[in-house]
Design a protein around this nucleic acid. Structure first.
Length: 121
DNA sequence: AGACTGACGGTCT
DNA sequence: GAGACCGCCAGTC
């Protein structure tokens, strides 16, 4: 599994109505501190198979990409459709909408060590 | 092989 | 809160 595959897998775990930051995704993909890679990975793929719009930066803001038609506007619309509210400054309240992933579930999806499920009750 | 290019995060003014 | 710096990796030419 390549580095990017792990990123895509994690992003796909983000549930409807919730968002995750690049740093968060990076950490879950075993790439703590390499939030950039997450952004680069999504930039290259921009696949419809991935809920890329649920990934935002640490400030709760939407990252804008010039090549996309109304990139930030589209992403914002998609998020609002999911019930995510934006503050007056155009930022998302992370305390309210941040995804709280289940470490074991993520690891399983990554086909990583099942160290956390060996004791499954 | 070397240089360039990209959706960022954390820390320090 | 906002802006400036630095670190960091994969893909393409």
């Amino acid at each position: 599994m390549s580095t990017y595959d792990a990123i895509y897998t994690v992003v796909r775990q983000i549930p409807y109505g919730q968002v995750a930051t690049y740093g968060q995704v990076a950490e879950l993909a075993n790439l703590y501190g390499q939030a950039r890679l997450v952004g680069y990975a999504l930039f290259r793929v921009q696949s419809t198979d991935i809920p890329w719009h649920r990934v935002i930066n640490a400030k709760g803001e939407i990252s804008y990409s010039s090549f996309r038609d109304g990139g930030d506007d589209l992403q914002r619309s998609l998020l609002e459709e999911e019930g995510i509210r934006f503050s007056s400054t155009g930022r998302i309240d992370l305390n309210e909408h941040r995804w709280r992933p289940d470490p074991c579930a993520v690891l399983t999806s990554l086909q990583a060590e099942d160290s956390c499920s060996t004791q499954t009750p």
